[in-house]
Design a binder for these strands. Structure first.
Length: 307
DNA sequence: AACGCGGGGGA
DNA sequence: TCCCCAGCGTT
C-alpha cells in the first residue's frame, strides 16, 4: 500500500513546526553523549523539564560518564537528586550506570532490547534513548505523543489511562519510514505536546495540525475517561511523609546519623507522630524507605542515614 | 490491569 | 485547590 498523502502532510507540518519552535534544551545539543541523554530521560520521568534542566547540568558536570556515577557513594547521589522526586529513580540510575560499566564496556547499548534490561529503563526510555542518543528508528510513546495522536487522529480529549497494544501499533503506523525523519518526528510530536497540545488549555490556534485535528473537527469533546482518572492525593499520604524523612536526611551533615524519634517527627512535619490521624504512619514510611534502600539503618536501628 | 511512588507550579 | 508532569517496577 502506498503512503497516504495525508500522513506525509502531517509529518511535514510537525517537522516544520519543530524546526521553527524547538526549545534549546541542553541534552539536545550536538555532542551530548548517549549516557547524558539517558540521564536526562530518567530525570524526566514524571519531572517537568524546567526542574530537570539545572539538575541535569550540575549532575553531568559532576559525573560525566557511567563509571563516574557508578563509583559515587549512594548518599551523594541521593543528595544530588535533591527534590526531583521519586528518589528511587536516583538509585536505579546508579544501578544502571553500574550495569553499563559491567555489561556494556561503559557504553550505553543501542538496541531497545538491551536498553530495556537496564535498571530504571522501561519502554518509553528505551525507545527515547535508542532514538535520541543513537539516532535509531523507534516508537517513542510518552504522555505528550499519546495526547497529540489521541487528539489529532482519534479525536479524544486525552488518551485512555492504560497504554495498550492497539494504541502502540497505531503510533507505529504514524512513524515515518526514514530513520532520520523518524527521530525528528518523535522529538517534534513530543515538543508539540509539551508546548501547544497541552493537557489543559491547549493552544490550538498555534497548532500546525489545526486543520487536520480530529478532536477539533469533532468540536473538542470532553474526556470520556475523566471519571476513571482518580488523582493520587498528596496531603497526608505515605509519600508525603517519606518525602519529609528524605528531605531531613539530605540536610544532615555527612557522617551524621539521625535518631529514630527525630526522623519520625520529621516525617510528621515536626509534630508528635502520636497526634496524627494515623500514628503509625511515620514508622511505616521509615520502614518502607529502609526496605527500598533509600535509608540505611544502624545495626541497632537507633540511627539512620542515607545509604 | 492496578497500584505506589515526590514534588512543585500553573490554571 | 486541583491537576499534570519525556514512567517504572511490582503485584
Amino acid at each position: 500500500m502506498r503512503a497516504e498523502p495525508r500522513l506525509e502532510d502531517i509529518h511535514a507540518r510537525v517537522l516544520a513546526w519543530y524546526d521553527a519552535n524547538a526549545r534549546d534544551l541542553p541534552w539536545r545539543r550536538p555532542g551530548t553523549s548517549p549516557w547524558a541523554v539517558l540521564v536526562s530521560e530518567v530525570m524526566l520521568q514524571q519531572t517537568p523539564v524546567v526542574r530537570v534542566e539545572p539538575a541535569w547540568t550540575a549532575w553531568m558536570e559532576r559525573w560525566p560518564a557511567p563509571a563516574d556515577l557508578a563509583a559515587a557513594p549512594p548518599a551523594d547521589v541521593l543528595r544530588a537528586w535533591d527534590r526531583l522526586g521519586y528518589p528511587r529513580r536516583a538509585l536505579r540510575l546508579q544501578e544502571c550506570a553500574r550495569a553499563v560499566v559491567a555489561h556494556h564496556g561503559g557504553e550505553v547499548p543501542e538496541t531497545e532490547e538491551e536498553l530495556l534490561d537496564l535498571p530504571g529503563v522501561g519502554a518509553y526510555t528505551a525507545a527515547a534513548v535508542a532514538a535520541f542518543a543513537h539516532g535509531r528508528r523507534a516508537v517513542v510513546l510518552d504522555t505528550n505523543v499519546r495526547r497529540v495522536l489521541g487528539r489529532a487522529i482519534e479525536g479524544r480529549a486525552l488518551p485512555p489511562p492504560a497504554l495498550g497494544r492497539a494504541e502502540r501499533e497505531r503510533a507505529a503506523g504514524y512513524l515515518p519510514a526514514g530513520t532520520a525523519e523518524s527521530v525528528r518526528w518523535n522529538v517534534g510530536v513530543m515538543e508539540l505536546g509539551a508546548l501547544v497540545c497541552t493537557a489543559r488549555s491547549p493552544r490550538c490556534t498555534a497548532c500546525p495540525l489545526l486543520g487536520r485535528c480530529a478532536w477539533v473537527a469533532a468540536g473538542r469533546p470532553d474526556d470520556e475517561h475523566a471519571h476513571r482518572r482518580r488523582t493520587q492525593g498528596w496531603h497526608g499520604t505515605d509519600r508525603q511523609v517519606r518525602g519529609r524523612i528524605m528531605a531531613h536526611l539530605r540536610r544532615l551533615p555527612d557522617g551524621l546519623a539521625a535518631g529514630r524519634e527525630e526522623l519520625l517527627a520529621a516525617g510528621a512535619d515536626g509534630a508528635d507522630p502520636a497526634a496524627l490521624p494515623d500514628p503509625a504512619q511515620p514508622a511505616r514510611a521509615l520502614a518502607s524507605l529502609v526496605a527500598d534502600g533509600l535509608v540505611a539503618a544502624e545495626p541497632d536501628a537507633s540511627g539512620f542515614r542515607l545509604p
